[in-house]
Design a protein around this nucleic acid. Structure first.
Lengths: 203, 203
DNA sequence: ATTCATCATATCACTTCGATATATCGACGA
DNA sequence: TCGTCGATATATCGAAGTGATATGATGAAT
């Protein structure tokens, strides 16, 4: 679901490929460094499908320059200079199209894809683009999946056929899933109190 | 690192492809269902490299039959019958070779590959095949990576540019990494107390 | 009897990864 | 001032993984 991630970043503002990689970590919480071997082909694909378009090299792009905070102590200095001057050599800045926006909402809400930890986190990070009802559906679906996984790893943690290391992995997986469940329950209770607030204000 | 996982399972006993998929979940704690589209090519690859070999269809394989506990309440009944009768149609059972064992130890201990959550868990699940010193190195390396990741997501959790959902993802990621760190510290303290026990007994 | 779920292997198109190549720019020291 | 180092930036390749789909055997249930 790299497509959703990229489109989600472009919903906010224009980006070029190199920047998307860092933004995935910084704004969407993606843990692995997504390789350029997936980002550039993905952008080409999205452009081919008319979901994004390249901004003309000379076009205004002041907002697309700031390089974020990960790059080190001199980042702010450098980014100031860069935004004052010209963009770098081959820099290709992409903008999301109207069709891209539609497709983004469809993909983000798509109920047929089963979430794993990564895609679920990604969807939550982009949850402001979902309706309250879709948010609740997303959370409850993941909750069910996690309950099943929990039963499985708890069984593994008690399995005397496994050695201490394998059992430890299972036991840690169980604790990790429990933490995930607490998080989801928190998010769900927030969704519910928000809708109460809304119902109250509607009176 | 599917190769290590498969070789690790075959260190214990012979397996066929279909069985490997369930064993990955049950014994090695792999959370995603690894697809057959990766397992069968991987087995073919390993056989091509001489790391595993197919046992003759009529060869003794009583130990390779039991189907595990996930298959439901009637599993034991069925497995009894199956082990009493013939093997299934195309079932191809693989055995690890001596070269395979060597390669397994090399891959498992390989210090050049950077672990993510999945490969690290996998290595811990197979940690009984590592020496105590290699286990400690594995754990401490991962510990360092997680400390860096923790700083990153904590920063994200406090980033006012992010909306509440994205910040929640970051904050949960931080808690999740903290849990991982506690686990690793537990494992490290066990390693240390084990080596003390050994030192004591050696006197 | 037939139909259904499970067991089992295999292959396909597409995506993703990791490595590598290429080039520019700014900073810093010799 | 020169060189080189690290960050910025795009691109491409082979290898590997995914999800879907096809095929077929076996045993259980109706």
């Amino acid at each position: 679901m790299l497509d959703v991630a990229i489109l989600g970043l472009l919903m906010d503002r224009d980006h070029h490929g190199y920047e998307i990689r860092s933004q995935l970590r910084e704004r969407l919480g993606v843990s692995a460094n997504v390789s350029f071997g997936s980002i550039y082909p993905a952008l080409a694909r999205l452009e081919r499908h008319g979901l994004v378009e390249a901004v003309a090299p000379g076009a205004p792009r002041a907002a697309a320059i700031s390089t974020g905070s990960l790059a080190g102590e001199r980042a702010s200095l450098r980014s100031l200079r860069t935004s004052a001057g010209l963009g770098r050599r081959g820099r290709k800045v992409y903008r999301i199209t109207e069709r891209g926006r539609q497709e983004f909402h469809t993909l983000l809400a798509d109920p047929t894809t089963v979430d794993d930890g990564k895609t679920f986190s990604l969807r939550v990070a982009l949850a402001r683009y979902l309706t309250p009802a879709l948010r609740v559906r997303l959370l409850e679906r993941r909750r069910q999946d996690l309950l099943e996984r929990l039963a499985e790893v708890r069984q593994g943690a008690d399995n005397p056929d496994l050695d201490a290391y394998a059992r430890s992995v299972m036991s840690h997986a169980a604790h990790s899933v429990e933490l995930d469940l607490e998080w989801i329950d928190d998010l769900l209770s927030i969704e519910r109190s928000d809708s109460e607030t809304f119902a109250h204000e509607a009176k």
